[in-house]
Design a protein around this nucleic acid. Structure first.
Length: 286
DNA sequence: CGGAGTGTTAGTCG
DNA sequence: CCGACTAACACTCC
């Protein structure tokens, strides 16, 4: 479900409530979600103090006083929900209404925190995972991802070099590749290609220099707007006021097939590319 | 009711 | 190495 802007939002909100807390308990109803042995969770997560909460690509990385890092990937439907002892709830920054109580039938992991709060991991499709990585292995793990598009040092050279290593594939698939750029997913790839006026089916090797430049700028612009909007939010969740995420209202093409292009008025098309639903305007995007 | 589609990515195969 | 395809899973929509 979440892409970079959603994970960034979750990370920012969890930082406020998790830093400095001690972990006093851990339970998992679905061992398959754990990529490290349960005994390691018992030994290195339980009793640890939370030092840091960070994001890299779509991963949430929680630094622990035991020298380990808790690495969490939400994949398609994973959610982290923090709940205070008083019942205050936080999920991706959006308080959840009475519709979705926690824990619920999709809650597979529960972490107990000092002060009585709990951190729940819900995941309908169970693609997500939790992993414990020691301080020696964490750098290597993270180095497998491409550049962070919102970092100051996101250079055009690295972006274009990484892209051009995949000259023969279409630009949609290339942008979904986390080694090219970290953090993009189906929504923001479609949105970025619209802003850059490039058709998703174009071969990477056929893109002009000018288009590559426009594309990098589009990726940064789209992601920044989405982070400012606290992400696209979650289909299935509303905040306490019943609103869905606010990037959803600003999107240009994703999920708008058949609707009018906001720039030229023609119908947005939907095709399948890289095995994914792909939305674009055949007039605005060449 | 059956089949396709869903915001991800590892793994496999050519 | 590169690129295309599929499985992992549960649910919703048509």
């Amino acid at each position: 479900m979440p892409e970079l802007p959603e994970v960034e939002t979750i990370k920012n909100d969890l930082t406020k409530v998790l830093i400095g807390k001690r972990i006093s308990g851990f339970s998992c109803r679905k061992p398959g979600l754990l990529r490290s042995p349960l005994r390691l969770f018992k030994a290195k997560l339980v009793s640890a103090r939370i030092i840091s909460v960070k994001r890299r690509a779509k991963l949430i990385i929680i630094g622990l006083s035991t020298g380990y890092h808790l690495v969490i990937h939400l994949k398609m439907t994973g959610q982290l929900v923090w709940r205070s002892s008083a019942g205050q709830v936080r999920s991706g920054g959006h308080p959840i209404g009475s519709v979705s109580k926690v824990p619920n039938k999709y809650t597979y992991i529960t972490v107990d925190l000092s002060g009585g709060a709990k951190l729940y991991f819900n995941d309908v499709r169970q693609f997500g995972y939790w992993q414990l990585v020691n301080k020696f292995d964490i750098a290597k793990l993270l180095s497998q991802y491409g550049p962070e598009p919102l970092a100051d040092h996101f250079s055009f050279e690295e972006f274009s070099d990484n892209l051009l290593r995949h000259s023969k594939t279409n630009i949609k698939a290339a942008l979904l590749n986390q080694k090219v750029v970290a953090g993009l997913g189906n929504i923001y790839v479609d949105e970025s290609l619209f802003v850059a006026k490039i058709r998703p089916s174009r071969k990477v090797g056929g893109l002009k220099m000018k288009e590559l430049v426009a594309l990098q700028a589009a990726v940064v612009k789209v992601l920044k707007r989405a982070v400012a909007a606290r992400g696209t939010s979650f289909n299935t969740y509303r905040d306490a006021l019943g609103r869905s995420g606010s990037y959803w209202q600003q999107r240009f093409v994703y999920g708008r097939d058949g609707d009018n292009c906001l720039v030229c008025g023609r119908a947005i098309k939907k095709i399948t590319l890289a095995g994914r639903g792909t939305h674009y305007c055949a007039f605005c995007q060449r």
